[in-house]
Design a protein around this nucleic acid. Structure first.
Lengths: 179, 179
DNA sequence: TTTAAACGATAACAAATGTTTAGACTTTCG
DNA sequence: CGAAAGTCTAAACATTTGTTATCGTTTAAA
């Protein structure tokens, strides 16, 4: 995405650390200001939001080689609404706020990197909004591997139903109806 | 959002033009690569997506002092899915792709501006996704003026229902039930 | 290895939401 | 101004989706 020298990359990564989470371990809880962005080396993280009735909704799945955080509240320095949970043993690189701000200032193309990352996630979300308007849950289920390859072998079906905004019982029904 | 000198601003705006659309006039059609971003001086633009059954869904309302375009496909240089329609007489500043790319390269804080704009729209969309998961359509209706002030006096109710993802009849019912 | 928990399918029933049509009122525009 | 189009509510009915419970199977952890 950007040009970056060996030296720059080493300087940047020198400010980062790695951490490993066990299966089903919580990576991040709501109500705290997120000051880190995670990059997933291996594993899978589920992003959830808990509504007023205490029901958990799966908002997103983050896979290997992707960044994940409550990026919105990271930017705004506001308390997070999201819970992040490792669904498998998951190793992440932790990018602290200070490392990221250092990068914006000191990397030759730091601001451009920031722009491209923000644009990338904007596009992801925009696609998602387009899909929710123009496709039925069944159509989105049938195409979910476009966004999350191999998801069916890694995540229980009821979490996929939650991501689609329907009940697990209903998803089971939809699958039956299309057989 | 950024520091910009008089000279820089004049150079940038010199590459832009203004245009006025009549009430109900189409601002932008799908299937063409969007090469412009609009800034609304006055008026109101509705963003729509048409599904496979030919049904129009209202995706967004853009108000005064806001930027609007199919930003996702502007970035990707892909054909748009959206229709933009002026719901009132609407005056826009047209920022061409060339002007924007010029700004990224030549404005002192051009890349930073690009990052902040992308981040801003990311946050807007993230809030929207949070809301669709954690709130009912009625709750979102009751709070819609947080996002679109005075919308009830400017837009017919059936378009708000479309934005909420429900039928106009159902919205009418929800309003009645809460009286 | 064993046992408890989790998972997915299914059925019966309840609730929410969509569809169609009608009518009264308002707005738009020639 | 006046006709036509647009708008909202309402009711009756149809359809979709959620809820709860059960059962057989798989999975996970002690």
């Amino acid at each position: 995405m950007i040009s970056i020298s060996e030296v720059e990359l080493d300087d940047f990564l020198g400010q980062c650390s790695t951490k490993t989470f066990k299966r089903n371990e919580t990576v991040s809880l709501p109500n705290a200001v997120p000051n880190e962005i995670f990059f997933i080396n291996r594993g899978l993280i589920r992003v959830m939001i808990t509504d007023n009735e205490g029901i958990e909704h799966t908002v997103h799945f983050a896979l290997e080689n992707q960044f994940i955080s409550d990026y919105s509240n990271f930017i705004q320095k506001q308390p997070s609404f999201y819970t992040l949970q490792a669904l498998e043993e998951t190793q992440v690189v932790i990018l602290s706020r200070s490392a990221i701000e250092w990068g914006y200032k000191n990397l030759q193309e730091g601001e451009k990197m920031g722009r491209l990352i923000a644009e990338y996630y904007f596009i992801y979300q925009d696609n998602r909004i387009k899909n929710t308007f123009s496709r039925t849950p069944k159509q989105r289920y049938d195409n979910i591997t476009d966004v999350f390859p191999n998801i069916h072998n890694r995540v229980p079906q009821h979490m996929i139903a939650s991501y689609l905004g329907i009940t697990p019982v209903h998803l089971s029904r939809l699958k039956k109806a299309s057989r």
